[in-house]
Nucleic acid binder design. Structure first.
Lengths: 194, 194, 194, 194
DNA sequence: AATGAATGAGTTTTCATTCAT
DNA sequence: TATGAATGAAAACTCATTCAT
């Protein structure tokens, strides 16, 4: 299928660097055919993003609306994001490298913001319920969680982190551990004095 | 200077979208002159990256070799990275948007790995000295810290996070707080049971 | 056809002087189309050379494997080479002016060596059979024959030798005459005494 | 010296392919300096040609006006041309590859024509005196001699012919032998019957 | 649906040449 | 003499996109 081919090619070469012809070759069709299904190269990327992000968002919202305690919800969020890697590595590659920080993809940013917002609400509610420490801004906390997850994915994408099944479980645990319990051996004074 | 002009132009228009001629105009020179100093458009980006990263690395190493306790070192690392935004916003824009997803320039470049390694060593030593909690893998902890910082920078670059002076201080505090003390209100069981 | 257009343009303007666009105009297509069929301007020249040379080689081999006496074979070789001028003057122009002195395309190309080798074998066999004088090294004899032919073609290309039909026949006869019978009125002592 | 450097560079890379900067580097001077001595890249080539060709022409004329028999004169011509290779290989390379058949060098062609003319007169006189066989057109004979010599030089330039001291002597002998006595074992009928 | 030849605007890159110093 | 920064015309080449078949 053409979209799958596009995902593979964009994952391998990067969106800007890869040519429409490369996608066609990978898909085993003439490049003219792409234009029956997609109006432009950009639409390929947009479509990949949209078809994928929705299902991620749905999963996040499901977690968000569950009755579980916030730390457990956070754990689930990490699991959802990180486990995608094993199932769809190329997709993750593209989402992480091309879509997430491409300014020209404009409105899609809104949908990414949705993911942030879901995590943000989750943190907010956790703090309100006393399940999470009240200090950190929910928004920033969400950004930190997202960044940590994305960076681990990037490490896998670039082959700089081991990604065996146990490694994935380990990473999940590490993120949850660090984000929830912190790295400090003893409670630290977190007010910046510099 | 040509490199500065390149940073401004790439920050404004994106690397792929901007033309060599634009950089020349911004620098106030003929485009041919660029090729006296840089062998290609790509080399412009590479050079921007390397010159910046070198100074970042030097700063990280300085922190690493200081005698301060690990949590304080972590705080300094966060400060160094995040404060770059105010000093050199265009540079950060370019690094976040272009370098992070350039396949060829990619992270394979040793220099990025160096930054990870520095943080990793910092965590390792902190754990050895009992200043940091021993659970999380140093490598993963480093990735998480780096990801959190990069994502905050990304939020600023994309205008999705407020970046007033107080916001920057707040972000610093939040990262240190989350990374060091965790989000949890009470110590949590971090062993994954899924 | 694009290659024919290229031959005409290169013959008219010289390879280095003519632009890819000129070839496209001559062929009546957009210049971009050239790059569907040839990866570069150089490949145009290379292809012209190879396609031509192949047919020349085939002709030479046919002569070589004929049962005729070597002098007759030599005569045929001369005829083949020299008569190309009348049939395909532009092609000869390009080969003489561009290929013969292109460093990269150079003679290193096996194909040219093949032509020499064919003549060399022809001479060798002729000497073995007693049809040709045994003195001269076959290799050198081949070089001399080839050089004489190429120089006559060059004379025609540069307009320094008359090339009417009778002139061509005359040239053929002259080469065969000189090469086979020599210029000397009486047998000369050929051992160099300097 | 700049001209020597130019000869080396043109010999190595070809005139069109080599850049003025290459010549400057080879000469160990700034490329701007070239323009104090030569008004253009073309003038470099022209100058090389002129400074060299004159001495060749003088040598040829000296042979021509000697009282020796024509075969001996021919032998001397061959010696002059071929022995240049050992003394000035790069120069020969340039003359053979770039100058000899470059149409744009326009008027210099006249000077090349002089060389042909000298050999032509030599042959003519030889035939008139009965020292050379009367059949072949003097003009064509000159072209053949010149072509044979050039091709041998080319063989040396391209490393396809051995060029040890004995090889050079052998080549000289071969050219003289073939040109004067012919390749034929027995006198052949040279009238073309095809 | 499918092909792939054809287009051409848009870019990077090259390099001879100039000129202030 | 000598330098090398600076110029800019000129070219090669790319590639998304169109369209006849």
């Amino acid at each position: 299928m053409i979209l799958d081919a596009a995902v593979r090619v964009f994952a391998r070469d990067g969106f800007h660097t890869s040519r429409v012809g490369d996608v066609a070759v990978e898909a085993g069709v003439a490049h003219g055919l792409l234009y029956h299904y997609f109006s432009s190269k950009d639409e390929l990327l947009t479509t990949i993003f949209r078809e994928t992000w929705d299902s991620l968002l749905r999963a996040l919202r499901e977690v968000e609306t569950s009755r579980e305690p916030a730390p457990e919800q956070l754990r689930k969020v990490c699991a959802i994001v990180l486990r995608t890697w094993k199932r769809e590595p190329d997709l993750v590659r593209v989402l992480v490298r091309e879509v997430a920080r491409s300014p020209q993809l404009g409105r899609e940013v809104n949908e990414i913001a949705e993911a942030f917002a879901a995590i943000e609400r989750l943190v907010e509610r956790g703090q309100a319920r006393g399940e999470l420490r009240a200090g950190p801004e929910p928004r920033l906390a969400a950004v930190i969680v997202y960044g940590a997850l994305e960076e681990i994915l990037t490490g896998w994408v670039l082959g700089q982190l081991p990604d065996g099944d146990e490694d994935v479980a380990l990473a999940e645990e590490a993120v949850v551990g660090v984000i929830c319990s912190g790295l400090a051996a003893v409670p630290v004074q977190t007010t910046l004095s510099a």
